[in-house]
Structures are given as C-alpha cells and as structure tokens.
Amino acid sequence: MSEATAADDAVDGDAESTNGSAGQEGADESDEFTVDIQRWLINAFIVFHVCGIIVWNLPNSSLQEGLTKFYSLYMGVSSSWQQWTMFSPDPVIFNTYVTATVHYQNGSTREYTFQRISKLGILAKYRQERWRKFIENTQDNSRPDYWPYLARYAAVTEDYAPITNPVVSVDLFRHQQSIVYGGAAHPEYLTMKMMSEHVISMPLPRPGETSR
C-alpha cells in the first residue's frame, strides 16, 4: 500500500476531501449523505468481490468448499469464476491425441483423427488451438461420460453417405507418449482403446442440421 501515498500521482485522497467539506449545511448535507451511501455501497462491493475471488483461488479444503458454495451464485452471474493452475501443481508429462474408427452398416470403416495441433502451420495453430484444450479436457479417464460425444462427432464429421450407409458404431482410441526428461528420444505412442460406442441410438445431426 505504500505506493498509494506516492506524492506525484496522489491527490489528497482521504474520505473527507473526496466527499466534500463536512461543515456544509442544507442541500449540501443531503448530498453528502448520498455520497456517503455510495461510498458504503462501493466499500461493500469491494470487500464482497475481492473476498469472492480470493475464496475461488484458495487451495482445496472443506472451508474453501463451503465458501465457494456461498459465492457460487455471485461468481456465476458476474462471470468472475476463475482458475489459475496453469501447468500446476505439475505440468502434464504426456503428448496425447485421439483417433476414432467409424464402422458403417455395410462393414466398411473410416479412420478419423481429432485435430492435432503439431501437424498444423503457425497460423492454423493459432486458430485451432482450442482443439488441444478440448481433447485435453475430454479424453481423460476421469470423464468417460464425455466420450460418447466425441464418438458422435467422429461419426458425423466427414460423413458423406449418411443415408445409404449409416454409421453403426465408433471406437475411440487414445494415443499417448511419455515426455522423458533429459532430452533423450521419446518413446513410441502407446494406443489404448477408450470405448466402443454404438452411436446408432444417439441423435446424429448432419453438418449444417440441428438436432432440435
């Protein structure tokens, strides 16, 4: 707070000087009342908001969980929800990508690879980066409930003959390579089958159509 007292950018900033003289009467007094009310409201907002963003960033604990519930409505409506755990507590140590094998009614298959940023040029990397985040957030073993949606997308996209030869099922595969510390050559990608989804039961809008 020491900088607040810096002489060169600080005009006398205490409450009295910014609120006007306390000795004024009549209309000025009511005005001062309004200013005071405003100041109290601002103070209340400052305390509430700053506490909210601090609570949201506290390390996980039962206290934090309880306070988060208290603030959840405000943080949701003000859209101040946040998380700043970039590359922490430890960075991810895998290169990962996801592929799908789409099975058609006539027995044919089609391979689909979800966007791999490493295969793109500089400008495309900028525009397509969200694919990396999306795959990072959906391929994890803790969220198998997201995988049918991945399967659905693989079935729908690049599907040129949906009526005559519909999709029967989709297999999803995760390909993962460990990043080995020390500059040594990284091992080969390991392929794991994530799921085999019978997408026939899911609504499959064609590109350009809506599901509703």
Binding site: P91, N95, S118, Y181
Partner: peptide, 19 residues
C-alpha cells in the same frame, strides 16, 4: 505443491509437448 516445480524440471515438459 508440485514435485517438478520444486526440483526445477517443470518447464521442460511444456516445452516438449508437441501440441
């Protein structure tokens, strides 16, 4: 709270993530 940050190796991994 991260082991890699404390032992001084954390930056290596993001720099070697191909994507």
């Amino acid at each position: 709270n991260g082991r890699d940050w404390m032992n001084g190796t954390a930056v290596y991994y993001p720099l070697h993530m191909v994507d």
